[in-house]
Structure formats: structure tokens, C-alpha cells
Computed example of a mutant assay.
Amino acid sequence: MEITFSTLYNLVNSMNSIYQKIQKSSGLPSSEYWVMYSVYKDGSRFAHEICLATFMSRQTASLAIKNLARKGWNTIEVSPENRRAKELHTTEEGMVFARQFIFPVGRLEERAWSRLSAEEKESSIAIMSRFRSFFIEEAAPLLKEEKP
């Protein structure tokens, strides 16, 4: 069997489909779920951090944050360090959701990861880091901005 990039791509997509099923089972719209996930898993507190962690557009993340605030799951406050930045704080209602649908995901991720040997963990990180470096090199021509 020939191992191609498609093999890796399909594996990553199958992992993503598990996350998608978990998100759907929560009953929360996708963008709102991933904002909550980002807050707890990545420690994101600002819209720009959430965008980086979730690959959402600024508009999508902002709308999800506002919808969560309307539900009473978070508050949005002006950051004392940067008056233009809005800081996200979770309410007790948001914590109820997180305890049921976010924290368990983190625990199952850690349990699955712990089942790998130290060598498998090191190899996984090393190989993906190397692939990422090669990918960045190959993508460089596409990432350069056009000059006027």
C-alpha cells in the first residue's frame, strides 16, 4: 500500500469528524462551541486569540461571542491594557456548559494521548514538526503578498 499525503489528510479529517460529532451533541452552534472550547482548552480571552485558535474569521468569532453573552454564558469587558480589545469572561452558566461538554473532551484527549508510549509521543511531535516546516517552505510562494 502506497502511503500518500491523502492518507494523512483523511486521518486528520476523521479526527475532526469526531470533534464535530461531539460539538453537535452539545446542541450549541459550531462557532459558539468552538469559542467555548478555545476559552477553556487554549486559554483564549480575546477575539483575536479565539480566531487564531479556531481559524474563524473575526466576524464569525465576534458574533459567536455576542450570542454567548446574550445567553448569559459570558461577559464582554473592555481590556484595561488595550481599550480596543474586548476581554471574554465566562459566567457560572457558561461554566455549567463547559463542565458538561468541554472539560470531558480535554480529559478524553489526555487519556487517549496517555495511551501512546513516550517514543510514540516524541515521534508524533517530531514528524509533525518536520512536516510543518516543510509545508511552510513549500507554501511560501503562495503566502507572499503581491507587490503593486
Score class of each variant (00 low, 15 high):
M1E: 13
M1G: 10
E2H: 11
I3E: 03
S6N: 12
T7G: 08
Y9C: 14
Y9V: 13
L11K: 13
V12W: 07
N13H: 08
S14F: 06
M15L: 15
N16S: 14
I18M: 14
Q20H: 10
I22S: 03
K24F: 08
S26I: 03
L28P: 06
L28S: 06
S30W: 14
S30K: 14
S31M: 07
S31N: 11
Y33R: 07
Y33A: 00
Y37K: 15
Y40I: 00
Y40L: 02
K41L: 15
D42W: 04
S44E: 03
R45D: 14
R45P: 14
H48C: 08
E49V: 02
E49W: 02
L52D: 09
A53M: 05
T54D: 01
T54R: 11
F55S: 12
M56D: 01
S57L: 02
S57N: 04
T60M: 09
A61V: 01
A64P: 01
N67R: 10
R70E: 15
K71L: 04
G72H: 00
I76N: 12
E77D: 07
V78R: 10
S79C: 04
E81Q: 15
R83P: 10
R83H: 09
R84P: 09
R84K: 09
A85I: 07
K86Y: 14
K86T: 08
T90N: 06
T91G: 03
T91Q: 02
E92L: 01
F101D: 02
F101N: 14
F101A: 04
I102S: 01
F103Y: 12
P104G: 00
P104R: 02
V105Y: 05
G106T: 03
G106M: 07
G106F: 01
L108I: 09
E110L: 11
E110Y: 04
A112G: 01
S114W: 05
S114Y: 07
R115W: 05
S117Q: 01
K121A: 03
K121D: 05
K121R: 07
E122V: 03
E122G: 04
S123L: 13
I125D: 08
A126P: 05
I127R: 04
R130C: 14
S133T: 14
F134M: 11
F135L: 14
F135I: 09
F135K: 14
I136Q: 12
E137A: 13
A139G: 03
A139Y: 00
L143H: 06
E146D: 07
P148N: 10
P148K: 12
